[in-house]
Design a binder for these strands. Sequence first.
DNA 1: CGCCAGAATTTTGTTAACAATATAAACAGA
DNA 2: TCTGTTTATATTGTTAACAAAATTCTGGCG
Lengths: 260, 260
Amino acid sequence: MNGDPKATKSLGRAARKSVPQNPVNMAGTKPNIKEAEDPSERVYRDIAKAVLEQRLQPGTKLGEQLLCEIFNVNRPVIRRALMRLSYETLVEIRPHRGAFVASPTPLDARQIFEARRALEDWVVRICAERIDPNALQSLTQHVAIEQEARLSDDRVRWIRLSGQFHLELAAATGNSRIQRYLEDLIAQTSLIISLYGGAERVACEDNDHSEIVAAIARADADHAISLMRAHLAACEAGLSFEEKGHATDLRAIFPVSGKR
Amino acid sequence: MNGDPKATKSLGRAARKSVPQNPVNMAGTKPNIKEAEDPSERVYRDIAKAVLEQRLQPGTKLGEQLLCEIFNVNRPVIRRALMRLSYETLVEIRPHRGAFVASPTPLDARQIFEARRALEDWVVRICAERIDPNALQSLTQHVAIEQEARLSDDRVRWIRLSGQFHLELAAATGNSRIQRYLEDLIAQTSLIISLYGGAERVACEDNDHSEIVAAIARADADHAISLMRAHLAACEAGLSFEEKGHATDLRAIFPVSGKR
DNA sequence: CGCCAGAATTTTGTTAACAATATAAACAGA
DNA sequence: TCTGTTTATATTGTTAACAAAATTCTGGCG
């Protein structure tokens, strides 16, 4: 989430007198700001979330009209959301063809994991060096929630929490840029696991997370880093780049060969 | 400079012949594809380039109509370019207010330099460990060109080449994601230097670059890293956050009448 | 029976007009 | 003369209709 603290949409202080009978929303208390949030923001968030939770599989076509009906918005709104998603390489827009959920290649996967290693090494080191007690508390609690979700077999929730752990770690460094980049990489990791993931298709093991937190709590940077390295390596090692024969891929690859 | 009556309507794309004469355009010749590049791409690139070369100062308003006239395109095209620029936090879009060249705060500056340190440490290490001879050759040549530009007092060219050096370094790692993130950070570094830069407002010193390349050529990762760290630290130390008394800064700081 | 060509349909991309909001300018009152 | 309000202008955001491209369907041919 790219929290936008500046989007305060301050509607005019003085009520405009153009309409005398202006049903002012009970002034006095906190002016319930209309928020007037860009609807494309919601569309973007929902689609990104679906990708993150592996409910949207790579190669899925995202037709504009269909999305309009689903979200009850106009096409430019959809278009903006898709454009933003394409900027984060979560969807691929092919001119005059449409938008599709991105399908990272094995090479992409390698680069993404490499980038994650580069960033998360730094994140873990910073966390171990200067960790806010509150943040540490929050992390510990998060790991507990994760375990609970895993035990209760709530797969979608588990996946979401799994990725969120890494994000909270990044957030704990206080560097919003690194956090944003890691958001991007984690979302694409979801795609990669959707494509090349093994049997259970999980992102992370719980135990790894709790051990990392423990090492951070001990301010043992080196150990925390090696744990994170092993964690990501295990995740990457669990991929199998052979099973690429999904139907969606075939349709994306062969434009028209079919008849039925 | 009212617009010529030309071009806008007369889409210059070659008329597509539905004549059966051309049943299948074989793969042999594809020079006429024209790529049909999105015009917003050009607008985006030009504006980003202007920011990178510090010709566009932070806080500058980027009115849509004005840009339409400058680039001879329609508003949606401008709008797309601005939206993309806002994704990269090069411009800030305030609802119903317009788009402005971003003005990173001192806190932003700190985070950006921190992120650069995190990424470029990794970049330099990877380069020192596994550098392609061709890439090394290219880097050496680039440094030479940089020096030439500096000696010839071509300030804009020097600034551009200075940033490009770091990008080529990132490109040499072969990781396009890291490269993209660093592009983002370097562009914002230009903004920071525009805002808080000292007298000469330069990004980098030439000697630093050549020394870094030399260390990489020797495969001396540790030395290369410490050189890069010192290089970035020197750049950051050259900033002065005091001279903020510009009018544009004040307007950017107070979003609307000092509320909130 | 399978394959290729051509037209219809769907979908994307673009253009233009409309509405809402913020900015500014002018004006009245103190 | 200055402050506060009102009106006018300009710019942004949205909606709707139009045009181009591609996929799909249909028909003819090998």
